[in-house]
Write a protein that binds this DNA or RNA. Structure first.
Length: 573
RNA sequence: UGGGGCGUCGCCAAGUGGUAAGGCACCUGGUUUUGGUCCAGGCAUUCCGAGGUUCGAAUCCUUGCGCCCCAGCCA
């Protein structure tokens, strides 16, 4: 803020309202949040919403409460050794940083395994937990269902001593996976199914990527999460709506341990609606299926809504943050329109991406009255009049050029103002040309267009006495740089993937989500474009030099997003 | 069916008893050497429905309806 004008009424959201209230009531003097991914997959744009919320909260309140210790942790929720991996942890850290956030402390739930174990023994000592030796099928049966209360099993009566002995032997590795579990002793007939003596620990003879073989019993999420939060002094533990039922258990765990464990805070859980986007999939299961089933090239495939995918697609962190801010934080389940995300990247790149000329589907044009021996070097601005930036390059103009196939029509409709037999168009930054003839192949396809140019109208000038409505892009045939261009579009061709539990959604994959174009003709200046650089190919869209596959000798561009195209939209009607 | 949540424009979303913000999308028109950008205008007499309280209700009460979540030794 460099203005002394009163800050505009901040949008705010219900979480900030709660925090403001907590601060005003003196319940907290600082705010500590955390972003707690499980390292078993890549982050996607839904996580970005949570990241922006949690880290954003820390940033905002640190400003308001300087020196208070307000912060946001990154914590890996690594309580299930079978699914988690260091590989994912590295990718997650890279993604969080790329989005523009830095954590105040990196933690693992596994850092607290010893403490959690002690808490479990404490609960046993307090008769608040017991070792249950039912099979998983029996546990399920005893739990009842949403309309039928569960019922206690015989093991619920075990003595403290027996429970303690069994639990210690579980830890010592005396039992096989599944033989016993530790459960909270709460209420088997509680209307909230999460409270029907939930499992706290299970036996897993599996090496953990952080703790190795130190443990063969691992805490469940509902036990590990509140304890981790409380140990770290988290004040506001923000999660998604599906955990609303778990909040009662979260509170039970904290309340039953807070005096014993002397937690530095009494954290509270708050739930907000996770992000859903149409024309794509966001669930871990579906993303995993796409990757492992080789339906995409990997976690960073530009068709995916993963952070890595969006990054490779050419999205900017700023655009993703703007998107998250625009979407807001609330409690109603919702599905945001992909058009909103596309708007954000166009809006950002409009100011950031230099304009260049590139012909994707080339059609040769010969300008008959332009000498073959001549080359003109024309000035072309990198920026349109409305972007306040300086910079130009020279583009060579010759007798033979390429234009876009879509910019020529044999029998154009009246409102088509590009090139057609007898029609005149302006070549961007160059001359006006008139089509005098076309050359077709054996099957009647136009393979070359013959034109003449008006030497009296200098590049940059307007012809006198007539108006030339259309301007098209072009590239000098002799100077063009060949490139591969990957045209990306929405992952799915349907707004919502079929609901099926299985792989139904695969049928909704948009076959045109990736179209590879070879032999595209780009202007000479792009020869030295380097990986990660973004450009606007005028009249077509925003493109990025693929960070992985592009080589100086074999350029590869990814289409980030098309430009809005009111002509194409009008055509559909 | 028990419990927990949620229902404001096509999609998000403010609003917390004083007479429906904003963004996206869409539609009009203008500017334009990008059919881009930008600019101007339009876009909910009504807030899931029905009653009620009140001078006044999206906001309070009652009662329906709809949708989501919970029956993993996943998170």
């Amino acid at each position: 803020m460099d203005s002394c004008a009163p800050a505009p009424a901040k949008p705010g959201d219900f979480i900030r309202d709660i925090i403001d209230d907590d601060l005003a009531a003196g319940r907290h003097q600082k705010v500590i949040t955390r972003f707690p991914p499980e390292p078993n997959g890549f982050l996607h744009i839904g996580h970005a919403k949570s990241i922006c919320l949690n880290f954003g909260l820390a940033l905002d309140y640190r400003q308001r409460l300087p020196g208070s210790g307000t912060r946001c942790h990154l914590r890996f929720d690594d309580t299930d050794p079978a699914k988690e991996d260091t590989l994912f942890e590295e990718a997650i850290q890279e993604d969080v940083r790329w989005l523009g956030f830095e954590w105040d402390g990196l933690y693992h739930a596994s850092d607290y395994f010893q403490k959690m174990y002690e808490c479990a023994e404490h609960l046993i000592a307090q008769d608040k937990a017991y070792v249950c030796s039912l099979s998983d099928a029996e546990i399920k049966a005893y739990r009842g269902n949403v309309t039928t209360p569960g019922k206690p099993c015989q093991f619920r009566q075990r003595s403290h001593d027996e429970n303690m002995d069994l639990f210690r032997r579980m830890k010592a590795g005396e039992f096989k996976d599944g033989e016993h579990v530790l459960r909270a002793k709460i209420d088997m007939s509680n209307p909230n199914m999460k409270m029907r003596d939930p499992l706290l620990y299970r036996i897993r003879h599996t090496a953990h990527h952080m703790t190795g073989n130190t443990w063969c019993i691992y805490p469940m999420y509902d036990f590990a999460h509140p304890i981790s939060d409380a140990i770290e002094g988290i004040t506001h533990s923000i999660c998604t709506l599906e955990f609303e039922n778990n909040r009662e258990l979260y509170d039970w765990v904290v309340d039953n341990l807070i005096d014993y464990a002397r937690f530095p805070s009494r954290p509270r859980q708050f739930e907000f609606a996770r992000l859903n986007l149409n024309y794509t999939v966001m669930s871990k299961r579906r993303l995993l299926e796409l990757v492992e089933g080789n339906h995409v090239s990997g976690w960073d495939d530009p068709r995916l809504p993963t952070i890595a995918g969006l990054r490779r697609r050419g999205y900017t962190p700023e655009s993703i943050r703007a998107f998250c801010a625009g979407v807001g934080v609330a409690k109603a389940n919702s599905t945001v329109d992909m058009a909103q995300l596309e708007f954000c990247i166009r809006d950002d790149l409009n100011q950031k991406a230099p304009r260049v000329l590139g012909v994707l589907k080339p059609l040769k044009v010969v300008i008959e009255n332009f000498p073959d021996s001549r080359t003109e070097e024309l000035d072309a601005s990198y920026w349109p009049h409305d972007v306040p930036k300086e910079g130009t390059r020279k583009v060579p103009f010759c007798r033979e050029i390429y234009i876009e196939q879509d910019d020529f029509m044999l029998e154009p409709p009246k409102d088509y103002f590009r090139l057609a037999p007898g029609r005149e168009v302006r070549l961007r930054y160059a001359y006006c040309i008139t089509c005098t003839d076309v050359i077709k192949d054996g099957s009647g396809n136009v393979i070359e267009v013959r034109c003449t140019y008006d030497p009296d109208v200098k590049p940059g000038d307007n012809p006198v006495g007539r108006k030339v409505k259309g301007t098209i892009h072009w590239v000098s045939a002799r100077h063009a740089v060949d490139a591969e261009v990957r045209l990306y579009d929405r992952l799915l061709s349907e707004e919502m993937p079929p609901a099926g539990k299985d792989s139904e959604f695969l049928k909704a994959i948009n076959p045109h989500a990736l179209q590879v174009l070879l032999g595209c003709k780009l202007e000479r200046s792009l020869e030295t474009a380097s990986p990660g650089e973004r450009y606007q190919f005028e009249r077509q869209g925003y493109f990025v030099v693929d960070p992985k596959d592009s080589k100086p000798s074999a350029l590869v561009f990814n289409r980030i997003v098309t430009l809005k195209d009111s002509w194409a939209r009008a055509q559909k009607k």
